[in-house]
Amino acid sequence: MKKFIMVICILAVVLLASVGITKVLNPQVALEDDTFTIVTSFYPTYIATKNVTDGIDGVKVINLTENHSGCLHDYQLTTNDMRKLEGADVFVMNGGGMEGFIEDVVAKYPDLTVINASAGIALLEPAEGHHHDHEEVDDHELDEAFDEHEDEKHDHEHETNAHVWMDPVRYMTQIENITAGLKKADADHTKAYETNQKAYLEKVKIIKEQIDMLKDKKHTSIITFHEAFSYLANYLGYDVVYCMDLDDESGLSAGEIAEVIDEIQKHDVKVLFTETQYKDSIATNISAETDAKVYVLTSLTADEDDLDAYLNGMQKNIDVLKSVFAE
């Protein structure tokens, strides 16, 4: 009996020693269980979440897609994406129908907490090649991940414009939604999340105040080459009479170009806004046939891993808008 007890004790010592050696040789193993891991869907949600979690020990933010991927239209999850989600405690998505793959995520990871950054935000209807009336629909906030998935499915079916972050007020609501979701999922860091939210909102508010000075009471008619600009235009009071969403750098037929030119002449459009990520040759060619001038804005869907990326990008847009309407 004594020999049996001695054998058990020896085995226990060996087991404990091996665990200790593992922690020394690979400290990451010891830390993984204590790290609160947040996976974001793409660049805009990544930057917002990074600001809310900045400097908080034990909290890690990983972007599901590459920072230069742009919008997630028709995006398909990769094996590497699934690996990231496997170790996530929370998944932060933009919402509004941006993440068409959300049903796959919910189906494979039913226990994963999903934060919908656009919950409760009024979304614009898309403006694709026709006059944009700024109709709005509600993206209602739901508590459970499956319900949020159903909400996303509803939005996708109704083809809402998901580029919410281009409106500074809506973006501030996204920040608040992300913070609220993280506080609920990780209560231990509630105060830190609240402190970071307050600091970031103050910075965004400064950007908003600059944009407010550019609001247009004349409802200037413009044409855009990216759907994201509809939110900024709507906030400023500009009238988007025609929108071509060229995310995939797709071309326009001769008939479509003729239609755009017709809209320019019909509404006396003087300004065409294109995007930094995509070729502006189409806009340039159309400009050559009309009196409208081409200006480049950023939709803030891709850039460097910088906490101030949104602020810097919007500042560039503000500078462009000032130059346009100061002429």
Rank of each mutant, 00 (worst) to 15 (best):
M93P: 04
Y46A: 08
D305S: 05
T35I: 15
V114Y: 06
A258I: 04
A199I: 02
D147W: 09
G20R: 08
K215H: 06
E135A: 06
L16K: 00
V90W: 06
D247R: 13
S250I: 09
D33Y: 05
D151C: 11
L307H: 11
V240T: 10
R83C: 06
V59Y: 04
V24H: 11
Q76L: 13
S41D: 12
D248R: 00
D247S: 13
P44Y: 03
I175Y: 00
T53C: 15
Y238H: 13
M172L: 02
G313W: 06
I115N: 09
E327M: 08
D167C: 09
E86K: 15
E249K: 09
K183C: 09
D188H: 11
S323F: 02
E86N: 15
L236W: 03
E136W: 01
L85V: 11
F229C: 02
F36E: 02
F273L: 15
P44K: 04
A107C: 06
H158A: 10
E103I: 00
M244W: 00
V137N: 03
H163P: 06
M98D: 15
T220E: 03
G251L: 07
D212T: 02
K279V: 00
T301A: 10
L11C: 13
D167M: 07
A107Y: 09
I175V: 15
S299D: 15
E32S: 15
K60C: 09
I38Y: 10
K184A: 15
K205F: 03
Q174L: 00
T35P: 08
V324K: 03
D33W: 01
H131C: 01
E135H: 08
E259W: 01
T40W: 05
Y200D: 03
D319N: 13
E103N: 13
D34C: 01
E32G: 07
N51V: 08
K3A: 13
H226T: 02
A48S: 08
